[in-house]
Simulated assay, not measured.
Amino acid sequence: MIAKRFETILLGLAATLLLALMAVTGIDVVGRYLLNAPLSGAFEMTELMLGALVFVALPLVSRAGAHVEVDLLVGALPRAVQRALGLFAATVSALVLCWFAWTLFGLMLDQWHEGARSVSLGVPLAPFAALGGVACLASALFGLLREFSHD
């Protein structure tokens, strides 16, 4: 049930990020147009939170099997071939996601050693790369578990 607990944490984090994005945008719009005082760093906050939201949602989409699929011919193939193609696609997707994770962890290490920070607010960037790497690994695992656990 670790996967279920992880899913609950991701759902809570996604909801929190979405709420924070709405708050930042709302405060910025009210400040900009009604008070002539925009929220300082709002654009950068939005960029960082939106990136984090995409990575937090990725494992949830993989777990639910809700990725966009185009299956023009698959329905006409025998069930065994459909199953083999599904397993092949899940394996290739997992390998690509693991490569993304490897790349993001490398980026995280570089950013950590260089002390990379965002331009306006000075937010450390390494944790965002780490989040992306963990999300890609979780997505790969969830996708494989989902496909290989079918009857």
Score class of each variant (00 low, 15 high):
2 I>A: 12
3 A>D: 00
4 K>G: 07
4 K>I: 07
5 R>K: 05
6 F>M: 01
11 L>F: 12
13 L>M: 01
13 L>G: 15
14 A>M: 05
19 L>W: 13
21 L>S: 06
23 A>F: 07
26 G>H: 01
27 I>M: 12
29 V>P: 00
34 L>K: 01
35 L>V: 00
39 L>N: 05
41 G>K: 03
42 A>L: 01
43 F>A: 07
44 E>K: 02
44 E>R: 06
46 T>C: 06
46 T>K: 13
50 L>P: 09
51 G>Y: 11
51 G>M: 01
54 V>P: 14
56 V>A: 15
62 S>P: 09
63 R>E: 00
64 A>R: 15
65 G>V: 01
71 D>R: 09
78 P>A: 14
80 A>D: 13
81 V>S: 12
85 L>Q: 02
86 G>F: 06
91 T>H: 08
98 C>R: 01
100 F>R: 10
101 A>Y: 09
101 A>M: 10
103 T>K: 11
103 T>R: 01
105 F>P: 04
107 L>Q: 14
108 M>W: 04
109 L>S: 14
111 Q>I: 05
113 H>Y: 03
113 H>A: 14
113 H>Q: 08
115 G>R: 01
117 R>I: 06
118 S>F: 08
120 S>D: 08
123 V>Q: 14
127 P>G: 03
129 A>H: 11
134 V>G: 08
135 A>H: 02
136 C>F: 00
136 C>S: 14
137 L>N: 11
145 L>E: 10
145 L>K: 04
